[in-house]
């Protein structure tokens, strides 16, 4: 009787396949680690450059021609001012749109159109929003290079992100809650306002904070609007000109003196600290308040 299974050949063949599996598994793992390694290098590099430049004076000084006197005060305050416009405008528009699409809109072509439009808007480069803002807000509505013009431009830019996040949060509220509310005699708006919104607010807030942190880090649209980088006073109202942290970092980065690169690194550290702070709030809200039904 001849051998039906040649064990040696099977083992040989299997070994090759298993080896390939393990080698590629390792390569895939390395690829995943690559991002982490770059992140560490980037942070290490920026921190070592920023050390020595990062002190209270840096937070308290206005921009200066001399690197040792330069500070980020105007940018830091300006970024907060920007949020004064972006946060309410984008939240009201974004959550309103999401409620309309999830609770009121009928399944028809117009609804489909709005939905497709939002996902396309999310893919429009930020610099194009800058061109929109420059034409409509800065020139046509004559708002100038003000906090209001920049805030409205940024609100439109982050709007799709907030809409999508709010839609997901609203969709996650189970229908039983709505039906129970109707059963108690509540009207549609009462149900939305008192049942659906409170249940979805953690999800909405998490998504919105992430969207706002994108607005804080965004540079390109503000460059197009012509927001100044060198400003030695603080804005007093939403119609004043202002500057933001990314604009100052951009300005410092593009200066030839080597010392300004350290100033830029210090600015980046401040910007990243603000972003980490916002993101940890978002994560905190998500972990603490999000219910699973």
């Amino acid at each position: 009787m001849g051998k039906l299974i040649d064990k040696q050949r099977v083992v040989q063949h299997m070994n090759g396949r298993l080896l390939r599996n393990n080698v590629l598994k390792f390569l895939f793992f390395l690829a995943t680690l690559f991002g982490l390694i770059v992140l560490v290098v980037l942070l290490y590099r920026i921190l070592t450059q920023a050390i020595g430049w990062l002190n209270l004076d840096f937070l308290n000084n206005f921009p200066s021609r001399r690197p040792e006197n330069a500070g980020i005060k105007a940018g830091l305050v300006g970024s907060l001012w920007l949020m004064v416009i972006v946060a309410p405008v984008s939240l009201i528009l974004g959550v309103g749109t999401a409620i309309y699409l999830e609770e009121y809109a009928k399944k028809n072509r117009f609804t489909d159109f709005i939905q497709t439009n939002i996902s396309n808007l999310a893919g429009v480069p930020s610099i194009v929003f800058g061109l929109l803002g420059l034409t409509i807000f800065v020139r046509e509505l004559n708002l100038g290079r003000s906090i209001l013009a920049a805030g409205l431009t940024m609100s439109l830019l982050v709007l799709p992100v907030i809409v999508v996040a709010a839609q997901e949060a609203i969709r996650a509220v189970p229908n039983q809650l709505r039906e129970a509310s109707y059963g108690m005699g509540a009207t549609k708006w009462q149900t939305i306002y008192r049942i659906v919104l409170p249940a979805s607010i953690p999800g909405i807030l998490t998504g919105s904070i992430l969207a706002l942190s994108r607005a804080i880090g965004e540079t390109a649209p503000l460059v197009v609007l012509g927001i100044p980088t060198f400003l030695a006073y603080l804005p007093r109202g939403i119609l004043d000109t202002f500057t933001v942290m990314p604009m100052q970092i951009y300005n410092w980065t593009s200066r030839p003196q080597a010392d300004f690169q350290n100033v830029a690194a210090a600015g980046i550290v401040v910007l990243l600290v603000v972003l980490i702070f916002m993101n940890s709030i978002a994560i905190f809200i998500r972990n603490k308040f999000q219910k699973r039904y």
């Binding site: 980037l42 804080i216 880090g217 980065t253 690169q261």
Partner: peptide, 15 residues
Amino acid sequence: LAGIPTIVYGFFALT
């Protein structure tokens, strides 16, 4: 990595 502002990447690329 995706949440880092692009100006930071620009700085990283240049310097």
